[in-house]
């Protein structure tokens, strides 16, 4: 099979995957590849976008008003965001989560020397536009973020800057410019250390050395909520 045959086969598999036509075994095998292959994910997203138009013009039907109230109650703070967690996690493919965790444990197992504390929180930052795949794992005891970039880099002559959105805050605080190295440790300033676990991380494209204004000036490339491991 030539390389171009392989690409076309992947494209067809991606289409069949989106249509949910693969048998359970082939589907599981495809999902295992998806969790590690950005190109394949791109193919899947392309098919999702193409085929979504089949559903976009269906007639609209107003749902019963009671549903809205029930839903808002379920996302209310005391309704327990945490309780709802396993449900979406399962729905979205527990396989992804497990693979991701394994990858992270392997990566940080190498990164953290003996006697160092393991991270308890994690965010996966993926910027498909720029081919960046990065995990940020947080060790609350040391107020340290362990950054591990498995793919991608800053745009030529530009820097990547890491941001923290504290929970409920519409504005981000800079956690600094990411070094070019694939592995990095970032010390979170004391004021913000307690806010990482419940916050959201983001990376943006900035001039060399970082944003001159204190807020993101370039494209926001990836956003990910921090999750408990």
């Amino acid at each position: 099979m030539t390389e171009s045959d392989g690409r076309q086969e992947d494209d067809l598999l991606a289409g069949e995957y989106v249509l949910h036509l693969l048998d359970p075994e082939a589907r599981a095998a495809f999902e295992r590849r998806l969790s590690q292959d950005l190109t394949l994910r791109r193919l899947v997203h392309d098919w999702e976008i193409r085929l979504a138009d089949l559903a976009v013009d269906l007639p609209e039907v107003a749902p019963p008003a009671a549903l809205r109230a029930a839903l808002l109650k379920r996302i209310a703070p005391e309704g327990g965001d945490r309780k709802a967690l396993p449900r979406w996690l399962f729905g979205f493919g527990a396989g992804f989560a497990v693979l991701l965790l394994l990858t992270v444990f392997m990566a940080f197992g190498l990164l953290t020397g003996p006697g160092e504390r393991p991270p308890s929180y994690l965010a996966e930052l993926v910027a498909e536009s720029d081919g960046i795949v990065m995990t940020a794992a947080y060790v609350p005891e040391d107020s340290t973020l362990l950054i591990s970039r498995s793919a991608g880099a800053a745009r030529p002559g530009r820097s990547l800057e890491l941001w923290l959105f504290p929970e409920g805050s519409p504005t981000a605080v800079s956690l600094g410019v990411l070094p070019d190295e694939a592995e990095a440790r970032i010390l979170v300033p004391g004021d913000y250390a307690g806010l990482v676990a419940t916050g959201t991380l983001a990376i943006s494209d900035e001039p060399p050395g970082g944003s001159p204004t204190g807020s993101a000036t370039g494209d926001v490339l990836a956003v990910a909520a921090v999750q408990k491991i």
Binding site: D46, I49, A70, L71, R74, A84, F92, A222, V223, A224
Partner: peptide
């Protein structure tokens, strides 16, 4: 309900898919 709960929990994954929001 399940769709919107998932949106609530997974809104951060939207940016990476390249979809239009409705799609």
């Amino acid at each position: 309900q399940e769709v919107y709960l998932r949106v609530w929990h997974k809104a951060d994954s939207y940016a990476v898919t390249g979809h239009s929001p409705i799609s």
